[in-house]
C-alpha cells in the first residue's frame, strides 16, 4: 500500500492509460505485423509459414531496391534544401522587427494544411490543360506542357518539392525558437569585435542552436522513412516506379496486391532501419554530443 502511494510512482499512474492505448494500437499490431513477415498471408484467409522466403524475394526485387534508393535521395534532398532555406529565413527573420508575425504565419501556413489540399493545389497548377502549362501554351510558350508529376525524370523531385514546400515552414519555426534563446550579449560582443552578419551566424547562432538543429536532422531522417502521403497522392509512385518509395511499395503490396506477408517484410526492414537511426543518435548522445 505504502509502495503504491509512493510519490515517485505517481507520474507512472498518469502515464499508464497512454501506455495501454499505445500497447493496443501500436505495440500488439506491430508485433503481429513482425510475425506476418514470415508468412504468405493475403490479408484474408489461411496463414502459411514461409520462413524467410519474403526477405529472399525482397532482396531480389528490383522495384524494392529502386524504392530504397528513392528514399535515400528523398532524405538527402530534405536534409539539404528545406534545412538550408529554413535556416537562412529564420536567421533573416530574427532581424525583422515589424511584420515578422506575418512572415512566420505565411511560411508556416502550408504546414497547417492537409496534405490532400496541398497536393491538389500543385496538381492543378501543373495540370497540362487547366494549369500553368495550358496558360503558357495559350500564349505560345511550350514550358510545362507536361506535368512534372507524370514525367518519369522529374516525378520524384516534383513530389519532394511539394512536400518540402509544406515542410520548411515548420523548420523555420523551430529554428526561430532556438535562435531567440541565444543570449543577446553574445551578439553584442561580436558587434564590438566587428563581426559580420555571416560570422555571427556561423560562430554564434549555429553552435548555439545545435541541439535543435541536430534534432531537426534526426526527425528528417526518421520521417523520410515512412514518407507516403505526398507520393501517394501526387504520383502514386509512378510513372513506372520513378517516384516509388518504400512506404508506398508496402501499401501497394498490402492493400492492392493482397500480399500482406510480403508487405510485412518491407515494414520489418523499415522498422529495423528506424531503430538503427535512433540507436545512432542515442549513441552520439551518450558520447556527449549535445543532441
Amino acid at each position: 500500500m505504502n509502495l503504491l502511494s509512493k510519490k515517485s510512482y505517481i507520474a507512472w499512474y498518469f502515464v499508464i492509460p497512454v501506455v495501454f492505448i499505445h500497447l493496443f494500437v501500436i505495440g500488439i499490431p506491430s508485433i503481429l505485423s513482425l510475425a506476418l513477415c514470415l508468412t504468405d498471408w493475403s490479408g484474408l484467409g489461411k496463414i502459411n509459414y514461409v520462413g524467410f522466403e519474403n526477405f529472399i524475394e525482397l532482396f531480389d526485387d528490383r522495384y524494392f531496391k529502386k524504392a530504397i534508393f528513392h528514399n535515400i535521395l528523398w532524405t538527402i534532398i530534405f536534409l539539404t534544401v528545406p534545412v538550408c532555406i529554413a535556416l537562412m529565413c529564420a536567421y533573416l527573420l530574427t532581424g525583422i522587427k515589424r511584420g515578422q508575425m506575418f512572415y512566420r504565419l505565411a511560411f508556416f501556413f502550408p504546414y497547417m494544411l492537409a496534405s490532400v489540399v496541398n497536393c491538389q493545389i500543385w496538381k492543378y497548377l501543373f495540370h497540362p490543360i487547366h494549369g500553368l502549362g495550358g496558360f503558357f501554351e495559350s500564349i505560345g510558350i511550350e514550358a510545362l506542357a507536361s506535368s512534372p508529376f507524370t514525367t518519369k525524370e522529374t516525378s520524384l523531385y516534383a513530389a519532394a518539392f511539394v512536400d518540402g514546400w509544406h515542410f520548411w515552414g515548420f523548420l523555420v519555426v523551430i529554428y526561430l525558437t532556438g535562435m531567440y534563446q541565444v543570449d543577446n550579449h553574445l551578439y553584442e560582443a561580436a558587434d564590438i569585435e566587428g563581426a559580420s552578419k555571416f560570422q555571427k551566424f556561423r560562430y554564434i547562432t549555429l553552435p548555439m542552436i545545435r541541439p535543435i538543429f541536430i534534432f531537426s536532422l534526426m526527425i528528417i531522417i526518421i520521417w523520410s522513412v515512412p514518407v507516403f502521403d505526398y507520393v501517394y497522392i501526387l504520383t502514386g509512385g509512378g510513372p513506372a516506379y520513378s517516384s516509388e518509395v518504400v512506404a508506398n511499395y508496402l501499401y501497394t503490396h498490402a492493400f492492392v496486391r493482397f500480399n500482406v506477408g510480403y508487405a510485412s517484410a518491407v515494414g520489418t526492414l523499415m522498422f529495423i532501419y528506424v531503430i538503427f537511426i535512433v540507436g545512432i543518435f542515442g549513441l552520439l548522445r551518450k558520447l556527449g554530443w549535445e543532441i
Partner: peptide
C-alpha cells in the same frame, strides 16, 4: 497527346476533352 498527358488526365478532363472536340 502524350504518355505524360495520359497520366495527368482524369475522368472529368477526358469527358470535357471529348465534349469540346479536344
Amino acid at each position: 497527346g502524350s504518355l505524360e498527358n495520359y497520366y495527368a488526365i482524369g475522368w472529368d478532363d477526358f469527358h470535357a476533352q471529348f465534349a469540346t472536340r479536344g
